[in-house]
Design a protein around this nucleic acid. Structure first.
Length: 259
DNA sequence: ATGACAATCAGAGATTGA
């Protein structure tokens, strides 16, 4: 089973590029971030016609996450638990019913800039809630994965110019420590379980020719629970998508799971 | 450096992103 994550930076703007990538990559499940659309505005028929079940958790103008799945989805949950006053649409989870059931969680973790400040406080608080959700899923021994735009550069090797990012919310020590605490619960970061070394990125800014200079950062990740890590076959970044027509500033990352 | 790009909503330019 192939499961992908892709921050599309607006469904309206990616109305051509997203179906094209789906046809090419053929993921069984696609976790989408930044759909920038309310649920009623999401073109679900387009994807249903391609054989996908569609579940969205949208919001006007900003954020918004979705799950496309060729397999049935059950027990869809919208919103990250732990703060009922949080109105930002950044979390959706559902059980993918395949050969074995897997809880898939799609997330769009807050950017947090400028740091320090209220937006950074919100990022760290959101990460604490994410930690609690992972702990709860581990405690009930549910096979799961959490994938999406984490807005975290885990290590210096995950940026072309790490020195530029040192004080940034994506890389500052508190951000990295929170991410490490999450991984250290016993989760496996899929990409680094398969590929080592520098120059692997999932985001290139639209500005200043970042793509042409390969001035990127790796911020889109898969974290796997132990049972899912056991069946990890591959994890890759679809870097070529960034060179396509009217691309998002992120590219898809995917895992192949087998047994 | 408060900009470069891009997207959204709105119908110009502010806001957000990373």
């Amino acid at each position: 089973m192939k499961i992908a994550t892709f921050n599309i930076n607006g469904i309206k703007a990616r109305i051509a590029a997203l179906p094209e990538w789906l046809k090419d990559a053929q993921p069984d499940v696609a976790l989408l971030q930044e759909i920038k659309s309310v649920d009623e505005g999401f073109p679900r028929e387009l994807f249903e016609d391609m054989g996908y079940n569609v579940e969205t958790h949208g919001q006007k103008s900003f954020n918004g996450v979705a799950i496309l799945s060729k397999l049935p989805l059950e027990d869809v949950r919208r919103g990250l638990p732990g703060d009922d006053s949080d109105e930002q649409a950044r979390w959706i989870e559902a059980t993918v019913v395949g050969k074995q059931a897997i809880r898939v969680c799609g997330l769009y973790l807050p950017n947090g800039n400028p740091a320090p400040g209220p937006k950074y406080d919100y990022k760290l608080a959101w990460m604490a809630r994410l930690q609690a959700r992972a702990e709860a899923l581990l405690a009930e021994e549910t096979p799961f994965l959490m994938a999406g735009d984490y807005n975290i550069i885990p290590q210096d090797e995950d940026a072309r110019h790490p020195e530029v990012w040192q004080e940034d919310a994506l890389a500052r020590p508190e951000s990295r420590a929170a991410y490490r605490r999450l991984v250290n619960l016993g989760l496996t970061e899929a990409f680094r379980a398969r590929v080592h070394g520098p120059e692997h990125y999932s985001f290139w800014d639209y500005q200043a020719g970042a793509w042409n200079k390969d001035d990127g950062i790796r911020i889109d990740h898969f974290l796997l629970s132990p049972a899912v890590a056991d069946i990890l076959v591959d994890c890759q970044i679809d870097m070529h998508v960034r060179a396509g027509e009217k691309p998002s500033d992120h590219v898809p990352v995917w895992v192949e799971l087998g047994n």
